[in-house]
């Protein structure tokens, strides 16, 4: 008999009605995953797609700050927990429970939090679940690829050689495990650069570049402003996701 964690059986059930799970991934830190994940969820909602948003960066959650969400209002309990809607997006984060305190976690505890949150969280009506992930190819990323059925990652990077090398390693891991990659976004780049060449090398859709936006910090906590600043650059990502779920 194969031993399974009971929580994983429930987690699969909770996600079974969701048409598409999009982890926003990069093995390099500081490339803009959180901003892109959060804004992507807001834009999908504006495009009439019922969207959920999950912050898997347990030790350094930032999505609630990005969205200006009040984490003192916990998810409603209804045979599990149902994340509240923030600007129309069902938003779940461990920060509801850790508050403003630090949450230092070794790997095995990251694994436990992952299973616990996926087991207890229900996503009523959600069609697309966007997941913000921490950098690296460690517990959170591996858990997504191993335990979530058919995730289709969106890869984010910058033109910096360190990021390009790092992203290529992530692509290799995703390819080896037969995961379909939705596409690649080159952030903080005034024009298409090395990530477009990388996408051509691996046959991945290049879904555009986002220039460095000087005023971006002023939009943190203001979803309307995030949408205004980033919507032109995420249009192709939205279009591709809408095509997949239709």
């Amino acid at each position: 008999m194969i031993r399974l964690d009971p929580r994983l059986l429930a987690a699969r059930e909770r996600l079974s009605h969701i048409k598409l799970v999009v982890p926003v991934m990069s093995s390099k830190g500081g490339v803009g995953k959180t901003v892109i994940a959060g804004t992507l969820a807001l834009l999908l909602t504006k495009n009439n797609v019922e969207t959920g948003l999950l912050d898997l960066d347990f030790t350094n959650p930032g999505l609630h700050i990005l969205l200006g969400a009040d984490i003192r209002s916990w998810p409603e309990e209804e045979k599990g927990v149902v994340p509240p809607k923030i600007y129309g997006v069902r938003f779940m984060t461990a920060a509801y429970y850790s508050g403003d305190e630090p949450l230092p976690l070794r790997g095995r505890y990251v694994d436990e939090v992952f299973k616990e949150i996926l087991c207890i969280t229900r996503w009523p009506g959600v069609e697309v679940l966007v997941i913000d992930t921490p950098p690296g190819i460690r517990d959170e990323a591996l858990n997504i690829l191993t335990y979530i059925p058919s995730p289709k990652p969106l890869i984010v990077g910058t033109s910096c050689p360190l990021a390009v090398h790092s992203v290529e390693k992530l692509i290799k891991v995703l390819r080896e495990s037969n995961h379909e990659i939705i596409g690649l976004v080159e952030n903080m780049a005034d024009q298409p650069g090395p990530l477009r060449r990388l996408s051509e090398k691996y046959g991945i859709d290049y879904l555009g570049n986002i220039p460095y936006i000087k005023d971006l910090d002023t939009a943190i906590g203001s979803p309307d402003k995030l949408v205004e600043l980033l919507s032109p650059y995420l249009a192709r990502v939205i279009e591709k996701i809408r095509t997949i779920i239709s």
């Binding site: 399974l4 059986l9 309990e77 045979k79 599990g80 087991c119």
Partner: peptide, 19 residues
Amino acid sequence: MVHEWALADALARYIVYRI
């Protein structure tokens, strides 16, 4: 309805899976 239901659901699925 408290979140014990979610945990019970996980246990039930596991028990069914086992037997």
